[in-house]
Amino acid sequence: MIIPHIVNSVAEEAYKRLQQTGFSYKGANPELRAMLYLPLNEIVKKFTSKEYKEYTADIEAGLVLYSLFSPDKIGLRSASDEGIWKYLSIEIAPDLVYARWGDKENRFWKEKRRIWLKTVWWFIHLSWQGDEESTRKILQDLTTDEIVQLVERAGSGYRVDLNREIMKQLPAYRSKSTHRDIFRVVMKFNTARLIATEPSFSEGGTVGYVRRLFNSLSQR
C-alpha cells in the first residue's frame, strides 16, 4: 500500500485551509478515507462522550491504525516518514484528529514527535504482543503521559523487542509496587542500564534483561 506523503510547506498551507474552512474531510483519496473513517470515528465518538478516557482513545486508535497500516503493509520506511502521517492527519482524517485534540497544529503536522496518528501507531508498534487482544490487555493501566515518554524518546532508533518485553512484564510488576509512576521509573532506569549493556546479549537475552531490570528496582 502506498500512502502519499506531504512536505511541511504543503502541510502548512493545507492546515491553514482547514482552519479557514472547517476541520472536515475534503474528499481526498476516498479509499483511504473509507478504510479509516468508520473504525476511528467510533473511537472518537466514545472519547467525546467521555466513555473513553484519553488514554483508552489513544490506544484504541493506535490499534486500529496498526491493523490497517501494519508494518508489512506499509513498511517501517513509511511509518517513520512524518510526511505520511501529516497527510493522513490533514487530508484523510482531519475531523477525527480535531475531535481528539482540537485546533492544535502540533498534533496534525508541526511537531514531528507529536503528530497524533503517528504517535499512537508507534506506541502500539513498541508495545505489540503479537495480537490485538494481548496488546490491549497489557496496556490497560498506563497514562497518556507514558505513551508520550515511550514514543518521544526515539533516540537513534527504538529498541523494539526491549520495549515490548518491558510492556509485557510491567503489569505483573505494577501489581507488586506501590509507586504510582512505575512505568516512568522503569524507563528511566532502563536508559541508565542501556549505556553499558545490550539486552539481547545479556544473560537470558532481552527477557532476562527486563526481568533483572524490574528485580533491581524492587530490591532497592
Partner: peptide
C-alpha cells in the same frame, strides 16, 4: 567475548544488530 555489527537509523526510528 563477541564481535557484532550494530546498526542505527534515527531517520527510520530503528536499530538492530547482526549475528554475533
Amino acid at each position: 567475548l563477541g564481535i557484532v555489527l550494530e546498526w542505527t537509523s534515527p531517520e527510520s526510528s530503528q536499530r538492530g544488530h547482526s549475528n554475533i
